[in-house]
């Protein structure tokens, strides 16, 4: 069974079809890089009283104050998922970061305002007033503090198992404010 050699045109068309996928991938990658360069990653800058989505939790920072040498952020946290969250700031937990100049303060202590118990679970439809408390270094002088919020991304079908997952933290917003004194 021998077939006649196809004509040059046919062979060229076949090769062009075979190459078109690679060409498309190259072009797309190139265009995506151009797009990324055209829009620089600017994090939204929020102010006190504005809400920011952290993935499982919606957080509304209300006030930033100094109390006994500690930095206290009062906020309203609401679980926006349909089930109890035992780690409202994601897994691994990434609560807001407080940055002064170049130094990042250690992880804050997070308590409920209602009874000063540590924040454990966040129930759906029950927003909680919380305070995040950072211990300040000894030599601290009042300067503006930047808070960096990060958000977990939800994927309905992840690539590994095809199940709904919360994956990875990405920067969500920043807030810069001068801490006031406690009311």
């Amino acid at each position: 069974m021998t077939s006649p050699e196809p004509s040059l045109l046919r062979r060229m068309i076949r090769r062009a079809i075979a190459l078109s996928g690679i060409a498309a991938a190259l072009l797309l990658g190139w265009w995506m890089r151009i797009e990324a360069a055209r829009s620089p990653d600017l994090l939204p800058e929020i102010r006190l009283g504005e809400s920011v989505s952290l993935g499982r939790t919606q957080l509304r920072p209300d006030s930033l104050t100094l109390e006994d040498g500690r930095l206290v952020l009062r906020a309203l946290a609401e679980n926006v998922t349909g089930e109890t969250q035992s780690s409202p700031f994601g897994i691994p937990a990434r609560p807001p970061e407080a940055v002064i100049g170049d130094s990042v303060l250690p992880t804050p202590e997070i308590v409920l305002l209602r009874d000063q118990a540590p924040l454990g679970q966040l129930q759906p439809r029950l927003p909680e007033e919380i305070s995040m408390i950072w211990t300040l270094p000894e030599d601290w002088r009042p300067v503006p503090v930047t808070l960096r919020f990060s958000r977990e991304t939800f994927k309905l079908r992840d690539n590994l198992y095809g199940q709904a997952s919360w994956l990875g933290h990405v920067p969500a917003a920043t807030l810069t404010a001068l801490p006031g004194t406690a009311p």
């Binding site: 349909g82 089930e83 109890t84 129930q123 759906p124 439809r125």
Partner: peptide, 11 residues
């Protein structure tokens, strides 16, 4: 009643 799921409270 809304279909939301509440775990036993750790409190």
């Amino acid at each position: 009643a809304s279909g939301r799921r509440y775990a036993t409270t750790a409190r």
